[in-house]
Amino acid sequence: MNISRRQMLILLPAAAVAWKSVLAGTPESSPNYKMSEHWWSMLIDISKCIGCGNCVRACQTENDVPDGYFRTWVERYHVSDENMTNPEVISPDGGKEGFPEAKEDGGKYFYVPKLCNQCADSPCTQVCPVGATFVTPDGAVLVDQTYCLGCAYCVQACPYGCRYIHPQKKVVDKCTLCYHRITKGLTTACCEACPTGARQLADLKNPNDPIHAFLKTHSVQVLKPQMATGAKVFYNDLDGSVR
């Protein structure tokens, strides 16, 4: 095959573009990722959550979470007119398959997606006797499963009930904030699968992250602020009845 200089000059950029799209197939682990440049958190907009359970299913797929255990789950609150202080909370199978139909009855309903709050001053990491769970320099609370004894101190210490003993591995498992994804420049599986944008991964150290504008213009709350855990999962439109 003979290729003239002119043809070669046309072909080269075309090949470069093709190769670029091949490379884009699956993002590789980025060697340029610097832990010191990130401080991860999540924003949950309760006014947008429709309780479809996409996040729960996505999390189970992404992280091989065993059936009946949850790294994230969705609760439905029903605050009735007669009993404003004791809301009825349901979460059938973590909300994985959605929720039974709710009838209008004058009270209010809303969905609350829950996950590890990635606390900066986490009670769970403080009680670990062997240093198997820790807050990373970029703000994710992780478990070193090769080091964990399965003593479950941290399961008890977590005020949000976000940890469990893995039934097969017999060590602690929990939400990693999809650490294997966010370090590759992807968002978490739950945020990727959320159809309404009710969940948003946010990087508090990135000045261009839309979370800064959101926090300035909305009344945002964390769960159980009285525990002083430094929780980094921010809830917009959070009702006072949420525990």
């Binding site: 699956t26 797929t61 992780l142 070193d144 650490y179």
Partner: peptide
């Protein structure tokens, strides 16, 4: 152990190396 704190520093890299199941919409859109 102790590279970043009272835990095994290499654990961070091991967790970050887990495989991805959701490709992400940027990948789909290419």
């Amino acid at each position: 152990f102790g590279q970043y704190g009272h835990y095994r520093g290499n654990a961070i890299g091991e967790i970050a190396a887990r495989s991805v199941h959701f490709a992400g919409h940027d990948t789909c859109e290419t």
